[in-house]
Design a protein around this nucleic acid. Structure first.
Lengths: 132, 132
DNA sequence: GTACAACTTAAAGTTGACTTTAAGGCAAGG
DNA sequence: CCTTGCCTTAAAGTCAACTTTAAGTTGTAC
């Protein structure tokens, strides 16, 4: 019944076999059963990997994904786990966006205001400003 | 006259000495003159480093900063160099923001809509959706 | 004369998420 | 029997931007 080879699973999920081996090694996936030395997978493995992929696309690190799987009491519902992690990630993204917006503003300012001939001149101006 | 030691420069610019040595090694800074084996800097080095720091804070990679210094014809004015690089970085940031906004939306959707009891259930749903 | 601080170098280590490599195993087809 | 193709493992390599380490030099202070 568990007839899927690692490359078949990789193809269906859109990963390389080496990534799946890596997930197994770091304990994100349970150790797969072997048939004459080779890994064989069933659909539950596919579901696991689908979650991992989805979470990766949502910007979660493998450490955070590990937390999703193992960082809650057993009774905690999946939906609540997602909500907890998503809340944190949303706040992180908001801080990130604020940072990007600030940099964006600085870039526009430079484009509008810099009239330096030479980088040395430019560096001097920046250095003076740095000190105040 | 060029009396600044590497740690004095580092302190003024807000870097560690090892970073300055690293910049020299990768050719971002010219080789500093030595006094009995030790590097000594003058103000032009300070200005160079001020530019590098400013550019780093604007999200430029060291490769891009190298381009700022060496990637233009000699006659190209500093202001034009900044404008060229800033234009590119702005577009990059806009793409990045779009990506973050998309992820933000997905996170909110999950938080609002997921009602899964178990991660297996959740994974199954995700996997079904993946295939269409 | 010796301790100390600050410097020097080359090389290795750090982080995260893998990929690549090297060396080998196993089953099917011809 | 031999090739082909897919699989296995452990270990090393990748990227960026440094930092850390190890071993050694120099100048100054006591």
């Amino acid at each position: 019944m568990p007839g899927l080879t690692i490359s078949e699973v990789a193809r269906q999920i859109g990963l390389r076999p080496s990534a799946i081996r890596y997930y197994e090694k770091i304990g994100l996936l349970p150790r797969a059963m072997r048939m004459s030395g080779q890994r064989r997978y069933d659909t539950t493995a596919l579901y696991r990997l689908a979650i991992i992929q989805q979470a990766r696309e949502l910007g979660f690190t493998l450490t955070e994904i590990r937390h999703l799987f193992f960082g809650f009491r057993n009774v905690t519902r999946a939906s609540e786990r997602w909500r907890t992690l998503s809340q944190r990630k949303l706040e992180e993204l908001d801080r990130l966006m604020d940072g990007i917006r600030a940099v964006r503003g600085l870039l526009k300012k430079i484009m509008a205001n810099c009239r330096c001939d030479t980088l040395d001149q430019c560096g001097k101006d920046i250095f003076q400003n740095m000190k105040r």
